[in-house]
């Protein structure tokens, strides 16, 4: 740690960048109060809170929200299982192709979403799999796995193997060791990874546009408003809601990671 104070221009530039990252989201919140239905006039021509009630009463939004939550839940659970298994395998053993596992898992987020989306769609179409709730989940799980994997693997690498050996020496079998030593150790990493995977799935749109049939997830609803705005004020309310609902798990995941001095989970 430097004891020096930062030069003023650097401080200004640093905090300016931080503002640049956050102010746009606040502007949406501001616009939830506009009475203006057809344009984005600034300054706001008045003040109203009626859009919250109107958005609340929209059945299509509730359906989309429910769908998104269901998809995110199942995708997260799948990612937790697959990601933890992969992390455990990579951590405990040396095997041929071990180095390629990270590469394989990171592909779905390193390749543009449109590539994954269209590939999955082509495959599903080729095998006559009808687009449904499950095709959305399958798509989401591919890019959620790496998040859990990264978090759990980072935690494993910080856990010393001597704890596990001690547990075994003291007569615990593998299952007991897992239950009482390994699981408590990786619990927060699982929680952090799971929450990030959930947030990732909850607002994914690109892969979803390709793997969904008639289903409208919340991001797909917002996307349709982006290209053909029909309900501008309601969209503002929905957008604010999405910011808040994704903020909570992200914030908690970051706190969890930070408190155990991990720097994991920062790359999507």
């Amino acid at each position: 740690m430097h004891s020096k104070k930062a030069p003023l221009p650097l401080t200004i530039a640093a905090f300016g960048t931080l503002l640049f990252l956050h102010v746009p989201m606040l502007i949406i919140f501001l616009y939830t109060f506009t009475p203006d239905e057809t344009t984005y006039t600034f300054p706001l021509p008045g003040f109203t809170t009626k859009w919250f009630a109107i958005a609340w009463g929209r059945a299509d939004l509730w359906r989309s929200l429910t769908l998104s939550l269901q998809v995110a839940t199942i995708a997260t659970i799948s990612a937790l299982i697959l990601g933890t298994l992969a992390a455990a395998a990579v951590y405990r053993s040396n095997f041929f192709g071990r180095e390629s596992i990270s590469f394989l898992l990171v592909l779905p987020i390193a390749l543009p979403g449109i590539v994954s989306g269209i590939a999955l769609r082509t495959a599903m179409g080729g095998f006559d799999i009808p687009f449904s709730f499950w095709t959305i989940v399958i798509g989401h799980a591919t890019f959620c796995v790496v998040v859990v994997y990264n978090n759990v693997l980072a935690r494993f690498r910080r856990t010393s193997t001597s704890m596990i050996e001690a547990s075994m020496d003291l007569g615990a079998n593998s299952f007991q060791t897992f239950r009482y030593v390994v699981l408590p150790n990786i619990a927060t990493a699982l929680l952090a990874g799971g929450m990030l995977a959930f947030a990732l799935s909850f607002d994914e749109v690109i892969v979803t546009t390709f793997t969904a049939g008639q289903q409208t997830t919340l991001p797909i609803w917002i996307f349709s408003q982006l290209t053909r705005p029909r309900d501008r004020p309601v969209t503002n309310v929905v957008a604010t809601f999405v910011i808040i609902i994704t903020f909570i798990p992200i914030f908690l995941a970051q706190r969890l990671s930070a408190s155990s001095s991990d720097t994991e989970g920062e790359t999507k």
Partner: peptide, 28 residues
């Protein structure tokens, strides 16, 4: 770091949307 990672993880779509408001001809 939380200030940087929150935008990274938060809704991509909503962040794009915010610029529709900002860049609009009559906008902020």
């Amino acid at each position: 770091l939380i200030g940087v990672t929150i935008p990274l993880w938060s809704s991509y779509l909503v962040r794009v949307y915010s610029w529709k408001l900002i860049l609009a001809q009559e906008g902020i």
